[in-house]
C-alpha cells in the first residue's frame, strides 16, 4: 500500500482513446509500485505534472491483471484538459483508491437496473462488466443510457456490442433529435418507466448529472422500488480524497469518504436542499 495517501504514485499512460469530442479514456500502468486494487465505483485523484489534480472515477475493468487502470476524462477545466491531451508515454500521478464502491456483490440474486446519463456511464461500466463476468449471480441486467446526441455516447463500440448481447437489456436514448438515429429519443426516465420491475428484487445504480439521478430515482420510487435499493454516485469538490480537507461536504457526508456511492435513502433529503 502507498504509505502516504497524499503522495501520488507514478503511472505511465499506455493507451489513449478518444471517446467523444470532449472525452478521452486513458489506460495507465504503474511506473513503480502499483496502488492497491480498485473496486468499481471508487475513484482516483489524477495529477498532471504542474497543472493540478482532479477526482476521476475508474471506468475500466478494475480487476485487470496487469495492474492497469482505465479512466475516462471529460475536458471541463484546466486539469481535465491537460489530462485529455496526454499521450502514450506520459507520466501522471495517481492517488487512491478512494471512496465507497458500488458494492455489486451485495446485489447478487437481484435484477440490476443501471441508469447512466452522459459521462455518468464511465463509473457504471465496471458494474456492467462485473455483472457480465458473473452473469449467473444476477437476474435481469437492464442498462439504460442517455446522451445529448448520438455522438456523445461513451464507449460506442462496446455499447453496440452490449445492445446485441442477449444477457443484457440495453436502451440507448438521446435528448436532442438527430438524423440517422435508430435508437430512442427521450429522457432516460421514459424507458426507465417502461421497465416491468419487481420492487423487492431490483437494485438500481445511477450516475449522471444530479437532476438526472433525482428524476430517475423518483421514477424508480414511483415503481415502488425502495430508496435504499437505489445507489447513486455523487459528485462534490474532492481535493484530498481522504476526508481531511473538508471540501466535498454534502450535509453530514464527506463525499470522498462516505461516498461517492450513496444510497438514495441517505441522499434524497440532502439533494433536495438548495446549495447544501
Amino acid at each position: 500500500m502507498n504509505a502516504d495517501p497524499m503522495l501520488p504514485a507514478r503511472y505511465l499512460v499506455a493507451d489513449t482513446r478518444r471517446e467523444t469530442h470532449d472525452s478521452v479514456s486513458l489506460r495507465i500502468v504503474p511506473a513503480g509500485e502499483p496502488l492497491p486494487a480498485f473496486r468499481p465505483g471508487q475513484f482516483t485523484m489524477l495529477y498532471r505534472q504542474g497543472v493540478g489534480e482532479i477526482a476521476i472515477s475508474v471506468s475500466g475493468d478494475p480487476s485487470a491483471a496487469d495492474g492497469s487502470l482505465t479512466q475516462t476524462i471529460r475536458d471541463v477545466g484546466a486539469v481535465s484538459r491537460a489530462l485529455c491531451r496526454c499521450e502514450p508515454g506520459d507520466i501522471v500521478g495517481v492517488r487512491g483508491p478512494f471512496g465507497t464502491g458500488w458494492d455489486l456483490e451485495s446485489a447478487a440474486g437481484h435484477d440490476l437496473v443501471v441508469v447512466a446519463g452522459g459521462v455518468g456511464l464511465a463509473p457504471l461500466r465496471p458494474v456492467v462488466l462485473g455483472a457480465l463476468a458473473r452473469r449467473a449471480e444476477f437476474g435481469r441486467v437492464v442498462v439504460i443510457t442517455g446522451a445529448r446526441n448520438p455522438r456523445e455516447f461513451l464507449f460506442r463500440e462496446q455499447l453496440a456490442g452490449w445492445a446485441d448481447d442477449p444477457r443484457l437489456e440495453v436502451t440507448l436514448t438521446i435528448d436532442q433529435p438527430a438524423a440517422h438515429w435508430h435508437g430512442q429519443v427521450g429522457f432516460v426516465t421514459e424507458p426507465l418507466a417502461r421497465q416491468e420491475t419487481e420492487p423487492a428484487r431490483t437494485i438500481a445504480f445511477l450516475c449522471g448529472p444530479e437532476p438526472m439521478m433525482r428524476f430517475s430515482a423518483e421514477a424508480l420510487m414511483a415503481r415502488q422500488i425502495p430508496a435504499a435499493s437505489i445507489r447513486l454516485s455523487l459528485e462534490r469538490n474532492m481535493k484530498c480524497g481522504v476526508g481531511l480537507c473538508g471540501h466535498c461536504q454534502l450535509g453530514p457526508l464527506l463525499i470522498c469518504r462516505d461516498g461517492p456511492i450513496v444510497d438514495y435513502e441517505t441522499a434524497q433529503p440532502l439533494l433536495a436542499v438548495r446549495e447544501l
Binding site: 504542474g50 493540478g52 489534480e53 481535493k239 484530498c240 481531511l244 473538508g246
Partner: peptide, 18 residues
C-alpha cells in the same frame, strides 16, 4: 481544519511542488 492545495512547477516543467 479545511485546507486546499496549490500546484506549481518550475519553468522547465521538470520540478513541481504541491
Amino acid at each position: 481544519f479545511c485546507t486546499t492545495t496549490r500546484d506549481s512547477s518550475g519553468e522547465t516543467g521538470e520540478h513541481a511542488e504541491r
